[in-house]
Design a protein around this nucleic acid. Structure first.
Lengths: 332, 332
DNA sequence: TTGTAAGCGTTATCAG
DNA sequence: CTGATAACGCTTACAA
């Protein structure tokens, strides 16, 4: 591979000048620029990004930490991030935290050791304090889908309370008043806020909140099936089921069918996230849109703006969820 | 951040010695090693990976090119690759090709410019010739889910012909003889081979192959719905539908239901890939397992072995698909 | 507008 | 087993 040295020789200019034309930021006369370009072309020169990084103290890489590499949620998120960053010539280094504290911290260390210019993390297990500490370090960190007090500037998040509210309101608007709720793990802020939104919707419509109609599950299919069984075992009666995410809804629907419910006639179900599989389910799932892809793009823009000085980018830090009506909620 | 220089000073040894203990490969006396370790500890020293790369001409990064970052198929694949590589202290730089020739080539160039030690690519649009050329270059390239003639050594692939055979055989074994098939785009080798397997299964069971029962679609939901409509519009009669992948199956099932079919009573459907959503569909989809996750791991092992000299790893280049029986195929 | 030269933080080669 | 010292390929003051 040709080096900048050979280019400078062939073009008959100094190293510095070649560097100037490649980085395209300093003033070089059109004539010399052309000479240099020709030489580069002729030698098939491509700058060595490692050497560039070492000298400029900038790697043009941003580290991404997600819980999992698979799953529609993270897929959308990474997709949004990568598209935006790639277009700007930056690359993403991706690693996983598996929603476990140790692994999340480990992933972050790993990324830091890789000299990323910035980090975009989706962490669930690590504490707010840890994050505040982390943000005090020398590498900029941006946080996805989580609003950390004192770190609002670094967060891209969804208004989960509103989402929870909208979900429950959607079934109330269809005439339901006996409404069960399967929640996510309450150590996760989004799960907590969605539940709060649920309660607000009930209160606003004068429907008394009953503990017996809430099941604390987790964000997985099994959470849904266990939740539904729990309600049935306890002889609760309800015509609508609000689920804290789509996977829960899927598990609950499968289970409901096994227990002999006709869907959506005997039971209306609403999810949250509008993850791809919501479209594939039967009946197609009514749910709350979580614009993860856009949020991913926005996180990328945030780093482009703050870290790479792309000043005119407009940033939006809090996103609003919206109702996606499909076939799983029936009017009473 | 402390540098190797400060460590060497504090430990009272030379740069070279510090380097020896960090890279842990040369012989250093236990005593000096300890001194150095202490100094590193005390300074919170972490080697600068960029400088290491520049000096050692090795980045410890492997470039991954997938068609999309979202979607269960690629999720599984990346997951397999990342887990394995991360455990070995290597990192992955991920980018996308969107199944378009230009973008795939572009992605590869991007990765090359990033000085990756190796590339693992899942490309669909680029020609075999291009890949053969690419492999002649100085950076090792490994190819996922595609068997390129003359490049067998660099490929990790699935026996798609066998998979296609197994899918069709599965419905034949359940007593079906009128079998429709919705294929994927025939410029993709896997789509072609699955169809060949389908034909072999028919032939082996003395079921005449009829052109009218094959629809050339694409690997998406819409391919499934269009295919099914096509057969119905042409008044074809069939009791089983074999789909070239799960998304096609999903589209076909949704469409079938809209057309008034009861599933699986009126129509048995089988998919291919055993992508996560297969579990979520109703009825749960019978399909062919495509062990993408394992294949991803294996690709990673291949680079660990060939590029990073982890010699004792055992490599398997061709994977076998298997039948996953669920609820969407009914016995006649 | 262009050139000179000093880093950037390591690894690797050679002596000792 | 340890130490000098020259790369690695580029960026960036500073000078001209």
């Amino acid at each position: 591979m040709a080096t900048i040295y050979e280019v400078s020789k062939l073009a008959g200019v100094s190293l510095a000048t070649v560097s100037r034309v490649t980085s395209n930021n300093a003033l070089v006369s059109e004539k010399t620029r052309q000479k240099v370009m020709d030489a580069m072309e002729q030698l098939g020169y491509r700058p060595n990004s490692i050497a560039q990084s070492l000298a400029s103290r900038r790697t043009n890489s941003v580290g991404i930490l997600v819980s999992e590499l698979h799953g529609p949620f993270f897929g959308q998120m990474m997709s949004g991030i990568e598209t935006e960053l790639r277009a700007a010539g930056k690359h993403v280094i991706i690693t996983t935290g598996h929603s476990e504290e140790d692994k999340e911290k480990d992933g972050i260390e790993f990324l830091k050791s890789r000299n990323c210019d910035a980090l975009i993390v989706h962490v669930e297990a690590v504490s707010d304090d840890y994050l505040r500490d982390l943000c005090r370090g020398d590498i900029p960190v941006y946080i996805m889908s989580r609003l950390v007090p004192e770190l609002e500037e670094n967060c891209i998040s969804l208004d989960n309370e509103l989402g929870g509210y909208l979900a429950t309101k959607a079934v109330i608007d269809q005439g339901h008043t006996d409404i069960a709720y399967i929640a996510g793990q309450q150590f996760k802020a989004d799960a907590r806020n969605r539940l709060i939104g649920h309660k607000r919707a009930l209160a606003e419509h004068n429907i008394p909140f009953k503990d017996s109609l809430v099941y604390m599950g987790d964000f997985k299919e099994t959470g849904g099936s266990e939740g539904l069984k729990h309600f049935v075992d306890n002889k609760q009666s309800f015509t609508a089921l609000v689920c804290a995410n789509d996977e829960i809804a899927s598990g609950a629907m499968t289970c409901a069918r096994e227990l002999g419910f006709a869907l959506p006639q005997d039971l209306s179900v609403i999810g949250f996230d509008n993850v791809i599989l919501a479209r594939y389910m039967y009946p197609k799932l009514t749910t709350i849109d979580n614009p993860v892809n856009e949020m991913g793009q926005m996180a990328a823009k945030l780093v482009l703006k703050n870290v790479y000085q792309q000043d005119k980018l407009v940033i939006k830090q809090i996103f609003e969820p919206g109702l996606i009506s499909r076939d799983s909620v029936l009017s009473r």
